[in-house]
């Protein structure tokens, strides 16, 4: 795996048609760290991630990969440095796990340079890392949601990029599988030094697994930095429009958000 490249959004604006979703956003992704982007629904966090991965064209501003504009770099070269697992990827009917994960090798191949031992090793390593090697010959249709998600992550790993972006990799998973996926991504970060950027919904897990936490609202960054410094009661209240207490997580000592609704508050007001 190559040394992680640097990734930086510079005055980036993104939108669909006339609708502006992300406005004039500048952010440096720390290399070799785990960055987690959080924010309320429709705050533009997924759009921002898609923009970082050049899945969406920038309406203004740019994304720099190793100091070069991602939009003017050949897409295949980008794919050797930066992998993205978007939300809701589609598995063709009947595809086997081995075949799906093998497709992560696409940027390493060409019309005349087909399957090699290196491809084989990368796919086997990705399956092993995600604990899906014994599923290799199975059809993806037959797998459970958790297994399927791990297989998709394996496909992204097989691409062997120094930067890995993931859009809500834990959606549709139960809590134990969420923790499993986040542990897996942390392993990848620690053993291979990969830069991981992901969008997460669950604030407590986000705080626990992030080295760098980015909080977004209305297409802009509200706060970014160490989760312990960033996620204060005031920030949660202003961003999520919800009162809460922030206490140290008894396990990881990272911030843990305890929401305060209208009912069952035990007298706290």
């Amino acid at each position: 795996m190559p040394a992680p490249s640097t990734l930086r959004a510079e005055e980036l604006s993104l939108g669909y048609g006339d609708r502006h979703v992300v406005d004039n956003l500048t952010l440096e992704i720390p290399a070799g760290k785990v960055t987690v982007i959080v924010g309320p629904n429709a705050c533009g966090k997924s759009t921002f991630l898609r923009g970082l991965a050049r899945l969406l064209p920038a309406s203004s501003g740019t994304v720099l990969l190793d100091g070069r504009s991602i939009h003017s770099t050949p897409s295949k070269d980008v794919a050797l440095q930066l992998g993205i697992l978007p939300q809701g990827p589609i598995a063709p009917d009947g595809i086997t796990v081995a075949d799906l994960v093998s497709r992560g090798r696409h940027p390493h191949q060409g019309y005349f340079r087909r399957w090699t031992a290196e491809d084989d090793a990368a796919v086997t390593a990705a399956l092993t890392a995600t604990g899906t090697l014994e599923l290799a010959a199975r059809s993806v249709d037959e797998l459970s949601g958790g297994q399927r998600q791990r297989v998709w992550i394996a496909m992204a790993l097989a691409q062997r990029t120094g930067i890995l972006l993931l859009d809500e990799p834990t959606t549709y998973l139960d809590l134990s599988h969420q923790v499993e996926v986040l542990d897996l991504l942390t392993d990848l970060n620690e053993t291979e030094g990969a830069t991981v950027v992901m969008v997460l919904h669950e604030l407590n897990l986000a705080c626990r697994y992030a080295d760098h936490l980015v909080v977004m609202k209305d297409g802009a960054i509200v706060a970014a930095g160490d989760p312990g410094e960033v996620l204060t009661e005031q920030v949660v209240e202003s961003v999520f429009d919800m009162r809460c207490r922030v206490v140290p997580d008894p396990v990881s000592r990272t911030p843990m958000i305890v929401p305060i609704g209208r009912h069952r508050t035990g007298g706290v007001s």
Partner: peptide, 8 residues
Amino acid sequence: DVARGLGL
């Protein structure tokens, strides 16, 4: 999206 991510 996956296809674009793979450099296609």
